[in-house]
């Protein structure tokens, strides 16, 4: 379980105000918020090494402030601007970077790439945005990540890709992993998400279960 307890962070124009919530393994949380509302800041609290925030974040009972390296090993952070070795192929990246994880399985990586119709011999820098996102998903699955953080991964996705994308997420969720995805696009929030959280100016204005009610009405002012 992931738990945020009164997490607050003030850094220039980026801020989070008393964020608290819980998320269990196997569930998908969608975080909606305008640009600047605090979505990336929320993810950064979990990822950054300096950990300049007040409050605590627990994952599987451990405070990630203290066990940060272990936490990063459980994490798959998926974003547009992730570095990787752009001049190397997907497989080479797995080979080079895999050594830092407890278990990185090259065969599994190749299989996942194959399932998604992607070449693991293509340079990461040559991948399209969609390919890059999927590569990062395969990368995360290959080291058996248990918590996936997707930063605006769905922007600009066509409907066909979107359906495949959620099918991939379902496979991931079925293996007792949790997924958190952020977006600033209202229509990206959909019935595939288990929980929906709305961030406004650094505060949670809504956090609730998504039973597939009216897409708009459900989280405009309940809970």
């Amino acid at each position: 379980m992931l738990e945020f307890r009164n997490v607050t962070k003030k850094q220039g124009s980026f801020c989070l105000n008393n964020i608290s919530f819980q998320l269990e393994e196997g569930y998908l949380l969608g975080i909606l918020g305008k640009n600047g509302a605090g979505k990336s800041t929320l993810l950064n609290c979990m990822l950054e090494r300096k950990k300049k925030y007040q409050g605590e974040i627990f994952y599987q009972g451990k405070n990630i402030r203290e066990e940060h390296q272990w936490f990063l090993g459980q994490c798959a952070y998926i974003a547009d601007d992730n570095q990787f070795f752009r001049m190397k192929t997907g497989a080479e990246n797995v080979d080079l970077l895999g050594g830092f994880y407890e278990e990185m399985d090259m065969d599994k990586f190749v299989q996942y790439m194959r399932d998604m119709d992607l070449s693991w011999r293509k340079n990461v820098g040559a991948m399209s945005r969609g390919e890059f996102i999927r590569f990062q998903l395969a990368f995360g699955r290959a080291h058996n990540a248990k918590i996936y953080l997707l930063d605006e991964a769905t922007a600009g996705m066509d409907p066909v890709f979107r359906r495949d994308f959620y099918n991939i997420l379902r496979e991931i969720l079925a293996q007792e992993a949790m997924v958190i995805m952020t977006t600033h696009i209202q229509s990206d929030i959909n019935r595939n998400m288990d929980y929906i959280c709305r961030l406004e100016q650094g505060k949670i204005s809504f956090y609730g279960e998504n039973f597939g009610g009216e897409e708009d009405g459900e989280f405009q002012g309940k809970d």
Binding site: R163, N167, R170, M193, F211
Partner: peptide, 17 residues
């Protein structure tokens, strides 16, 4: 619950409920 969610392309929370 998961299989049904898969088939219907809805969240697990929905089928669970």
């Amino acid at each position: 619950i998961r299989m049904l969610a898969n088939d219907l392309q809805v969240s697990v929370i929905t089928t669970k409920r």
